[in-house]
């Protein structure tokens, strides 16, 4: 493929990647920002979202759109409930201590994976997209007769992929509105800034924590439901989203939602763009080192107020 179409294709793919990453990372960013704990099981909530989407869509086997909408409405809240239950029974008792939370969520990761393996099985399972049209994209070339349009081999996207991008941005805007405008956002931001003072102002910090933990898991699950018609549900699919969201949150700057969104776009897109210029594995190595070096020279992240 020529350079131009190749780059456009990489950008389109990067954008889809980035929008799903954005939702997942926003979830982790909230948990990280407000509760100051690392949720190692965040990727497993993503996976649960995808797996539940498959299960729920199966109940409405008749029509793919109906199944998908049901999955979209049911899977994220179910995952959020599971997260809330874990926060109540375990994390709350740990006082949300950072180190012990890491161990507890590693434990949760094992538990979720094993339970999914035992019930859902080891295979990758698809969810049918509610609609999916291939959209070929034209490109310009100079021929003897002057400039002309043509459709390069493979330069295309699908209507569903475009929908994922729009939906992810809409959901992210919703989160932002909630944080910036609503009363809930005020409470969350107060808790984030200073837990003790918030407590003194009668903010029920532990309930806030439970809410944030559930919301974070729900956002991860929402990202997963959106992506599962493109990528299939599998019990080990949580690893990548965890690592990538983790990176996005740090690069974006702790607790900065704006930073998280930009970092998600940066990471999602750069992966695609670098792959145009280098052999695939080399591209991965370079992209990985790039992220590391950004942090080395901007330890507070690209958009953070001050070094962490």
């Amino acid at each position: 493929m020529e350079f131009g179409p190749h780059l456009i294709l990489a950008l389109l793919e990067g954008l889809v990647q980035a929008s799903v990453l954005m939702l997942t990372a926003l979830g982790l960013s909230l948990v990280f920002g407000v509760m100051r704990v690392v949720n190692v099981a965040h990727g497993e909530f993503f996976m649960l979202g995808a797996v539940l989407a498959h299960v729920v869509a199966g109940w409405f086997g008749a029509h793919p759109a109906l199944g998908f909408i049901a999955a979209l409405l049911l899977a994220p809240p179910l995952v959020a409930l599971a997260a809330l239950a874990f926060d109540r029974t375990v994390l709350h008792r740990l006082g949300h201590d950072p180190e012990r939370t890491i161990v507890a969520t590693i434990g949760l990761l094992y538990v979720i994976q094993q339970l999914t393996l035992m019930t859902f099985g080891p295979e990758a399972r698809p969810v049918t997209a509610p609609f999916n049209h291939r959209i070929a994209i034209p490109w310009i070339e100079t021929t003897a007769a002057g400039l002309s349009f043509y459709f390069p081999w493979g330069l295309s996207t699908t209507s569903y992929k475009l929908f994922v991008v729009v939906a992810a941005f809409a959901a992210s805007a919703g989160v932002w509105l909630m944080m910036a405008r609503g009363r809930v956002g005020l409470v969350l931001r107060a808790t984030q800034l200073d837990r003790e003072t918030a407590q003194a102002f009668a903010i029920p910090v532990h309930q806030v924590y439970g809410f944030v933990f559930a919301l974070g898991a729900g956002l991860a699950a929402l990202g997963a439901v959106l992506v599962v018609p493109i990528r299939q549900a599998h019990y080990l699919m949580g690893g990548d989203p965890l690592l990538l969201s983790f990176i996005v949150v740090i690069i974006g700057g702790l607790g900065s939602l704006r930073g998280t969104v930009w970092a998600a776009l940066l990471i999602g897109m750069s992966d695609g763009i670098v792959s145009v210029f280098f052999s695939p594995t080399l591209a991965k190595i370079l992209a990985t080192l790039l992220v590391a070096l950004v942090l080395v020279y901007r330890p507070g992240g690209l958009f953070g107020a001050k070094p962490a």
Binding site: F32, V38, L243, F246, I247, I250, L254, I285, T288, L289, V291, A292, L295, V296, Y297, P299, G300, G301, P307, A308
Partner: peptide, 18 residues
């Protein structure tokens, strides 16, 4: 070591992945 805390976690993670 130019970083600390969570940034140190991520930087070591990324180097290791590389």
């Amino acid at each position: 070591l130019r970083t600390a805390g969570v940034a140190f976690m991520i930087v070591t993670l990324m180097f290791s992945q590389a």
